[in-house]
Design a protein around this nucleic acid. Structure first.
Lengths: 225, 225
DNA sequence: CAAATAGTGTCTATAAGACACTATTGA
DNA sequence: TCAATAGTGTCTTATAGACACTATTTG
């Protein structure tokens, strides 16, 4: 800790910014892509709802800080956050110089506990948020849509009725439509996704029309769970 | 500066990491995609060459820090850095906890001054580098290749012989081939790029074969210069 | 049976790669 | 003339969207 940088000053001679992480937790609920907002207890009411975040502790990775903040502030566990962007406007936080490393996390809606301080809001209906939280959601939605453009449910959002996790192309398509924000042509969707799926040989039952083939992702989820 | 965060502690109570920026400056020189390495004066010889970087000053944006480091350490000006990724391994710097925000900057080779402490190295021949600098170059090359996949020279690397900045499809293709790292079929390249170009009505001259049409980018560069 | 859902066949438009071909210049 | 470069025509392949059609189930 005493070695010098090329200017001959030690690391301790520099004033340092605070580093925060803020995370857009995205999920699909009631057919819509939603983001998790949490209530900040001590904030003024109009800006009390915001993305979960925390300050980075020294010795901790960014992913660890994201995981810790989501566990403590929303009760959500086992996420695999992805970095999006560093927000660095010197005036973005009036408490001082704070950099925020924005993250995306994706989780099935049933793993977000219903709490007084949790809200799942459709991304189309997000209210004004403090700091850069609106922009962070924009980055997150863009990244998730890109991730879902070609691969079948890479983040495991399908809430399969089958105990073995297999799903029908309809269930898969409804998740992709929620992520994309618009309808997808069923025939083209089938032909595109089929290459990345394995047939189970079994069919779904109970629903109205013709029973549907059950599929599994080939090679498991892109983002491990 | 005295306001409190939700835990009731002020910002000053948290130990803070140092934040650095490190930049892969990419350019095309002698037909190859190259990265700029600079010599760190006080480092041990085997690891003296590295990416230009600096610590973020409080009150400064990341882009400003990148610009300052490139001006001071390499004499390169007027860049428009793009954030790539935050490297956050707690052990990545033995001087203490240092986060590095990796950046990409793109510049024509003739704007990199020839200096004793500057080296342009083809990205295929990059030696072992300290910290995460090898990984940063990987991120940068991937980002630049993606940027050049569909748009004609979005970062203005073509060194046009014409005074008005117009160029032939051959000149454009050679730059794209250097970025991609492999040859591109001339006819398909022409048909793809043509949609994004405006004819000037004039032709190049002086070279061996049939004179080539001169084109300009439609709507100017994607990254302003 | 009617409605709903699953799944296929096929036509069109588009784009990229391959390859042959013509056109125009300098050495 | 020959080599080099510019540019086009066209064939093949692949993919996405559109749309019609068949298949199978429940209400």
């Amino acid at each position: 800790m005493t070695s010098l940088d090329p200017t001959g000053r030690s690391l301790d001679d520099y004033p340092r910014p605070s580093v925060a992480v803020d995370t857009a937790v995205l999920t699909v609920a009631r057919g819509a892509l939603c983001v998790l907002l949490v209530r900040a207890p001590d904030a003024e009411p109009s800006l009390a709802w915001r993305l979960p975040g925390t300050f980075l502790h020294v010795g901790e990775t960014l992913a660890d800080a994201v995981t810790r903040s989501l566990r403590q502030k929303a009760g959500v566990a086992d996420l695999h956050p992805q970095q999006l962007h560093v927000f660095d406007d010197p005036a973005r936080d009036d408490r001082g110089r704070v950099l925020s490393v924005a993250h995306l996390a994706v989780v099935r809606a049933d793993r977000v506990p219903a709490r007084d301080g949790n809200r799942l809001v459709p991304v189309a209906d997000v209210p004004a948020l403090p700091f850069d939280h609106g922009a962070i959601i924009g980055f997150a939605v863009t990244a998730l849509r890109e991730r879902y453009r070609t691969a079948p449910d890479p983040s495991g959002l399908v809430d399969a009725a089958e105990p073995d996790g297999s799903f029908t192309l309809r269930e898969l398509r409804l998740v992709h439509e929620a992520v994309a924000g618009h309808r997808l042509p069923p025939d083209a969707f089938r032909r595109t996704m089929r290459h990345h799926l394995t047939e189970t040989g079994r069919t779904s039952t109970g629903r109205r029309g013709k029973p549907a083939e059950l599929y599994r992702r080939r090679g498991g989820p892109s983002v491990p769970e």
